[in-house]
C-alpha cells in the first residue's frame, strides 16, 4: 500500500477522534465524547502531530469519515479534512462510518453477518449489512431505517447477526430482543480502521447524508402546488 504517514478524522457520532500513522507507529485518540468537535479537533490534530514530531506538511493521506452520522459533527470533520488536504497537498480518502464499524468489528474478531448501525437521530438509524470472513464485504447499500423495522426484519429472518455502532447503544433494548442477534460494544467508528484504508485511491470526498436524496423530489414539486 505504501502510505507511510496518514491522519484519520472521525466525527460522525457525538465523539470526536483521530489517529495518526507514521511508518510502524500508530496512535488513536479520543478527543471528546460529548459533541465538542469544533472545539477539540484542530488542537487535537496539532498536539498529535507534535507528539509524533511531524508537521502537517508531512502527511501523505488524510482519511475522513464522510458519514452517515451526526451532521453537526461531520461538517466539522469534513471541513477540517478539506482544509488540511488543500493546505498540505495530502491526498484525501473518504470512508463511511458504516464500513469503519465493519472493519473495526472484523479487527476485533467478529465473523459472519454484521449489521453496522449508526444513530441517525429523530427516531432513525443508518444501517448497512456486511459479511465478515477473511475480508469485509458489503452486502447492502447504506440505508435509513426505523430501529424497530431493523429488529423485526432480523427477528423474522432468524439468521445469526452481530450488531454494532452507536445506534445499537441508543436502542439497546430493541436490538437485544433479536433472538439470534449479538450486540457488540463497538460504538464509535474506529480511526485505526480508517488508517488501514489509507491506501485507497485518493480523490474528491462528499458527505454522505442519506436523507437528502429522499427530500429532493418533494422539494422540486414545491411550485407546482
Amino acid at each position: 500500500m505504501g502510505v507511510v504517514r496518514a491522519l484519520a478524522i472521525e466525527t460522525a457520532t457525538t465523539a470526536c477522534s483521530i489517529a495518526l500513522l507514521d511508518g510502524n507507529r500508530r496512535e488513536a485518540r479520543l478527543l471528546a465524547a460529548d459533541r465538542r468537535h469544533v472545539e477539540v479537533l484542530a488542537p487535537g490534530i496539532a498536539a498529535l502531530l507534535e507528539d509524533f514530531a511531524l508537521r502537517a506538511g508531512d502527511l501523505e493521506r488524510i482519511v475522513v469519515d464522510r458519514g452517515p452520522g451526526l451532521f453537526t459533527g461531520l461538517r466539522v470533520g469534513l471541513a477540517t479534512a478539506f482544509a488540511l488536504a488543500d493546505a498540505t497537498g495530502a491526498g484525501l480518502v473518504g470512508v463511511t462510518s458504516l464500513e469503519l464499524l465493519a472493519h473495526g468489528a472484523h479487527e476485533a474478531g467478529v465473523r459472519g453477518r454484521l449489521m453496522a448501525v449508526v444513530d441517525g437521530r429523530r427516531g432513525e438509524v443508518f444501517t448497512q449489512r456486511f459479511e465478515l470472513a477473511d475480508e469485509v464485504t458489503a452486502e447492502s447499500e447504506p440505508a435509513v431505517e426505523r430501529p424497530r423495522d431493523v429488529v423485526i426484519a432480523w427477528a423474522t429472518n432468524g439468521a445469526a447477526v452481530t450488531f454494532c455502532g452507536d445506534g445499537v447503544a441508543r436502542y439497546e433494548r430493541d436490538f437485544a430482543a433479536v433472538p439470534n442477534g449479538t450486540l457488540h460494544p463497538l460504538s464509535v467508528p474506529p480511526t485505526l480502521a480508517a488508517l488501514d484504508l489509507a491506501g485507497r485511491e485518493p480523490g474528491p470526498v462528499a458527505p454522505l447524508y442519506l436523507r437528502e436524496a429522499d427530500a429532493v423530489a418533494n422539494f422540486v414539486t414545491r411550485d407546482a402546488r
Binding site: 451526526l70 451532521f71 453537526t72 441517525g120 437521530r121 429523530r122 427516531g123 432513525e124 426505523r146 436523507r211 437528502e212 429522499d214 427530500a215 418533494n218 422539494f219 414545491r222
Partner: peptide, 27 residues
C-alpha cells in the same frame, strides 16, 4: 441542522417544513 440543534433543550418550528420532510427524520 435543526434536528440536532433541538437536542440541546430546544424545539424547532419549520414553516413549509413538509417540503423537506425527510431531512428531519421520522420523529
Amino acid at each position: 441542522a435543526l434536528g440536532e440543534l433541538v437536542e440541546e433543550a430546544a424545539v424547532a418550528v419549520v414553516e413549509w417544513g413538509e417540503l423537506a420532510a425527510p431531512v428531519f427524520g421520522a420523529d
